[in-house]
Design a protein around this nucleic acid. Structure first.
Length: 269
DNA sequence: CCATATGTTAAAAG
DNA sequence: ACTTTTAACATATG
């Protein structure tokens, strides 16, 4: 589930419900999710501190901590979400509006909680992640990340995305080029911009890149507002036999940039 | 058993 | 050396 829009929602949930509370306990015993830290390392670094700010660039998220403590890096991986609960056990809404089967309840198994902060009040902030590809670490290295997909200006976008020879979709997915675009947001953006995902960036002209930048901004902001990348216009049409919601042509599927890709063969050229 | 899955990254290939 | 592509990662689900 998590691409930039979902991560932004998770960040906002933390900001609204988990800041400025003193950390009383930490469960960091999942040594894969917390790698390369050893069990207890995160706990030792965090107990007694508070989360001060919730920040994000692309899909990377981190919290600053009180008294000049370390940054707490949180990455949702392929299936993670942040769940904050109040002392009475009620779940703070906002992380994932779909809830239901992907949610922490009622069918969320307890072992799918991979990391937990317990505050003095009894409130908790947890990483819920079925697939365990999410990651928690202290002072994450953010140097390799490109500018955030929602913030990048058009000139820099053209410079970065237009460089190289890779298919444009692969370029959009490269987090060191632009941070935050995942498989679904890439398909939505390319569909909005009417660009074939297989096109080489060396073949895109100034106008193509400008259109792509605009489509990315529009698609990203719409997804944040509506609650996630699933709310994109073309996303429900990423399946066999589906038609382009604009022109009715049958959607086409292929692997581009090592990911399953769907596009409209009529309009995306 | 097989294929698929919204992410990252190390290793291989070019 | 730099860019691009693929495989592997851990786990669930159809």
């Amino acid at each position: 589930m998590p691409e930039l829009p979902e991560v932004e929602r998770a960040r906002a949930t933390i900001e609204r419900a988990a800041l400025h509370r003193t950390i009383a306990d930490v469960d960091d015993t999942d040594s894969y999710v917390c790698r390369p830290h050893t069990p207890g390392q995160l706990k030792d670094a965090l107990v007694g501190r508070q989360l001060s700010e919730a920040c994000r660039r692309g899909k990377a998220m981190w919290c600053t901590t009180s008294r000049s403590g370390p940054l707490l890096g949180l990455h949702l991986g392929m299936a993670g979400r942040i769940v904050v609960t109040e002392p009475d056990g009620s779940v703070v809404e906002g992380g994932d509006p779909r809830g239901g089967g992907y949610g922490p309840s009622p069918d969320g198994k307890p072992e799918w909680y991979r990391f937990t902060l317990t505050f003095e009040s009894g409130a908790t902030m947890r990483l819920f992640d079925k697939r365990r590809l999410g990651r928690v670490r202290l002072d994450p290295d953010l140097d390799a990340l490109g500018p955030d997909a929602e913030m990048v200006r058009v000139a820099e976008f053209r410079d970065r995305v237009g460089r190289g020879t890779a298919p444009v979709k692969a370029r959009l997915l490269d987090q060191s080029v632009i941070a935050g675009v995942g498989n679904l947001l890439a398909d939505e953006t390319l569909w909005q911009a009417r660009i074939d995902p297989r096109r080489r960036v060396s073949d895109l002209d100034h106008d193509d890149l400008t259109r792509l930048h605009r489509a990315l901004g529009t698609a990203t902001r719409a997804a944040i507002r509506k609650g996630g990348v699933h709310t994109g216009e073309v996303i429900p049409h990423r399946r066999a036999g589906a038609e382009c919601p604009r022109c009715g042509a049958e959607m086409q599927r292929a692997t581009v940039g090592s990911r399953t890709t769907w596009w409209c063969p009529e309009e995306q050229v």
